[in-house]
Amino acid sequence: MFNIISLISGLLFGFGLALSGMVSPSKVVGFLDLTGNWDPSLAFVMGGGVLVTVISFRYILKQPSPFFGKEFKLPTKTDLDKYLISGAVLFGLGWGLGGLCPGPALSSLAYGNPKIFAFVGAMVGGILIAKALTGAF
């Protein structure tokens, strides 16, 4: 059941990203371009998502265990360490340059654009480099 729920969640997520316009790098850059021809759409995407999770997560996390699994696997760190900030800075730089974050990039593999394959390949390379440098291997 856990695996089927994961598949359904992924299907909804991929469709939601496409419908929201977030698969378009121009739309993402249009949001980040505050001094240009600003497109506020991304704030509505994030707002719509958080509107749901801020209510549903509170209820779900009050339960002793998840409905479709054995246990909750949640982030445990609470401190604002140098990794959090420096990682967010690197990500923000890449996001602004490419107009793509991981969800829209993976979803857009559906459309067969070779530029997206290049981005996703580089993203996997970036993960491997970061894991090697932080000693995760």
Partner: peptide, 23 residues
């Protein structure tokens, strides 16, 4: 479409948390 898409992302994340995972 962006608000509706965002709400769908929220629902998808809710579903995965019901399986115990963060989306």
């Amino acid at each position: 479409s962006s608000l509706l898409g965002g709400i769908i992302l929220g629902v998808a994340s809710t579903l995965l948390l019901m399986a115990g995972r963060i989306a």
